[in-house]
Amino acid sequence: MSNPPSDPAPSNEFAIIIKKRLYHSLSETGDAFRLLAETIFQIFRPPLQFNLLMKQLLLIGYNSLAVVLVSGFFTGMVLGIQGYVQLKPYAVEGSVAQFVSVSVVKELGPMITAFVLSGRIGASITAELSTMKVTEQIDALEVMGTNPVKYLVVPRFLACSIMLPTLTIFSTFAGIFGGYVAVVSLFGFNGDFYILQVQKYLYVGSVLISLIKATSFGMAIAAIGCYKGFSISTAGGAEGVGTATTGSAVISLVTILVLDFVLNHILFNILGLV
């Protein structure tokens, strides 16, 4: 039997790199899901430390409220302008309120909130946890008999899962209001008619879809943020913290988009929600 050649051909080398990357990605995904499973298991194991949860709720919710409101408001304004301009040639500009409210409630409300929080909270969770890992604070927790998943991940995971739908409600209202301000002030649209249209087309099912999406995005942001923070090696140093933080933000954004597609397919096509 002959030995493998010492200098692999470039195509082989490329295949080896692809194989390694694929293996690495699959292994990372497996680890992330293991952490998620451990987190869910720890949620139901008493005691739940309410003080830690409250701290995270405040940090994620209250501190993100302003940026979420502003983002939602301007998204609604843009939608209002675009909707009005696009619908006017067909003489159906009266549907602009329906266009804004349906888009904001079902899609853009949860999406914009998730984008804002993935950049603001997901990255900050990763930076905090990875710094704790590099400075051996997570090892210190372990030595002191405290489960780091229970102590660090569970409060962040729960807080994101609770606060993302809560903030989505605020961002949705801000978006609808933004649309109102845009079309009423810029195009002289009848404000009362706008409100009536919003009320008419705002279904319970749509709100439910919005909240399901937002909760899923919140879970994803927290899980990715915590996983990226935990997965750094102790020797990673400042560079490792930076890489993990950037990676967390990028993966969160991509995951939100993929998850949105999957949820849309499940909620609209399979479950038939409106």
């Binding site: 704790m132 400075t135 051996e136 604070q137 090892d139 210190a140 030595v143 002191m144 008999g145």
Partner: peptide, 23 residues
């Protein structure tokens, strides 16, 4: 497993290289 290991760890105190104090 973690639980019995934590019982043993209660007998142990550790000073880390960087002290590893919670910031």
């Amino acid at each position: 497993k973690r639980k019995p290991l934590n019982q043993i760890r209660r007998k142990i105190g550790m000073l880390f290289q960087s002290a590893a104090l919670f910031d």
